[in-house]
Amino acid sequence: MTGNQLAFLVLAAIGCLSALGVVVFGQNAVRSALFLVLNFFVLGFVYFALGAQLLGITQIMVYAGAIMVLFLFVIMMLQLRQDSSAKEPTDFKRPFAWLFGAALALSVMNYVVMPLSMTAESPVGDEFGRPQAIGNVLFSLYSWPFEVTSVLLLIGIVGSILLAKRRI
């Protein structure tokens, strides 16, 4: 086992455990959100390990730095008004959900992951993940989706203002 593999295993272990933490260990919403922050942070490092610098740092900035802060903000605002630290009740759905989840995971494992496990690395060079390369492609080949995304973000802004304002 090489150093890269070891590093990946550590990152993956933290990532998977924190993902479990979001669902299982997090008794209340704040704990869940914290586990998710950890997960996104580690995921940023996994992206670094894949060589995608720009996306790794964007992951940390957008997810861990902005989206999760928004989540925490909303959770805390809800908790200001309501003391909802009570544990959620368990019901019959729980074991079935895990069962189906495991079945899904195993089937995807069997039919998708295992056949691909021998895939060799593609001959992409050092350019992979460089901001310049991504920028060149993003603003030439993918400029139409880029513009559409900007419109989508605008709609998101307007929509959230509409939802948040009491009186327009």
């Binding site: 740092i57 964007t58 940390i60 900035m61 861990a64 730095g65 901001p131 310049q132």
Partner: peptide, 13 residues
């Protein structure tokens, strides 16, 4: 390559 983005990302944490 991403020096200044790194600053923004970490400061947002």
């Amino acid at each position: 390559d991403i020096g200044i983005l790194y600053v923004l990302a970490i400061s947002s944490l």
